[in-house]
């Protein structure tokens, strides 16, 4: 469980990035954090692994205060896939890149080999095993960074803008991975502007604005609150807007095209 209690944080340049944030993320929960640029989303998740320490309040992971331990220790429990994969790739080969964290965490060599193979196969990177990670395309680099994290099997995974630079097929695969993680009981936190990617997964949604949480609840409920979304410059999912135009029941928004089709066919004389 990840918990923020009255967390405030001000950047060195004086910008208040988090303003008294209270948030509790339960084990096994899938949570999406959305909001305008500069709302404090990335700052919030950087507190989870202790990369940033709260100026006020407390952040804890499974009861451990992030101020009392190192990022490396917290990362064993919480894996973070950063926005820019170029900030972490450095090894001679894709295989070595995947093994880097596993070795840091002290896994046995045979376990490292098995997990590397699993990651490369799961994320379609087997053919690049011996290639330099630096020559991969943007989408492949992104997949590699995610594979690197899932290889050490953390209890929680944080994905910062995972869909940037991904084509439709890769987004679909990524959504499948998120669902798989959810089904495996992992906590998944996704920071994203890509509402259409988040909507079919129906996560719990937290909307941030100016360092504060302005809405928090199930996607079906939060995405109906147009005022809150507009104030945080978050677009409504197209299916929700479509459903509202058609007068569908707010408590039963269209999750996919099939839902919309059923509704329309149900209204036909």
């Amino acid at each position: 469980m990840i918990e923020f209690e009255g967390v405030s944080f001000t950047h060195p340049n004086g910008v208040l990035a988090l303003d008294n944030v209270d948030l509790r993320i339960e084990k096994g929960e899938t949570l999406a954090i959305v909001g305008e640029n500069g709302a404090g989303k990335t700052t919030l998740v950087r507190h989870v692994t202790g990369l940033l320490k709260p100026a006020k309040g407390r952040v804890s992971v499974d009861g451990v205060d992030t101020r009392t331990t190192t990022t490396a220790t917290l990362s064993r429990k919480v894996g973070v896939a950063f926005q820019n994969p170029d900030h972490q790739l450095f090894s001679e080969s894709v295989e070595a890149e995947m093994a880097f964290a596993l070795k840091n965490f002290g896994f046995e060599p045979d376990v490292v080999a098995k997990r590397v193979s699993w990651g490369l196969q799961t994320f379609g990177l087997e053919e690049y095993r011996g290639s330099s990670p630096l020559i991969l395309s943007g989408g492949e680099k992104k997949r590699l960074t995610l594979a690197c994290i899932l290889a050490w099997d953390p209890d929680a995974v944080i994905l910062d803008e995972p869909t940037v630079g991904q084509d439709a097929l890769q987004k679909e695969r990524l959504a499948g991975t998120v669902r798989m993680l959810g089904a495996a009981g992992k906590t998944v936190v996704i920071v994203s502007h890509d509402i259409e990617f988040l909507w079919p997964m129906q996560p719990r949604v937290v909307v941030m604005k100016s360092g504060r949480i302005v809405a928090d609840g199930p996607a079906a409920e939060v995405m109906q609150r147009r005022e809150a979304l507009d104030s945080a410059r978050v677009a409504q999912p197209q299916l929700v807007a479509f459903g509202q135009e058609l007068g569908a029941k707010p408590e039963r928004p269209f999750v996919d095209a099939l839902g919309a089709r059923r509704f329309i066919e149900g209204r036909r004389p």
Binding site: T49, L51, T71, A72, S75, W152
Partner: peptide
Amino acid sequence: LDTFQIMDAQKSRGLE
């Protein structure tokens, strides 16, 4: 800024 972000990324992969 790049340096700090890279350091953060590597620390998040268990690098002490």
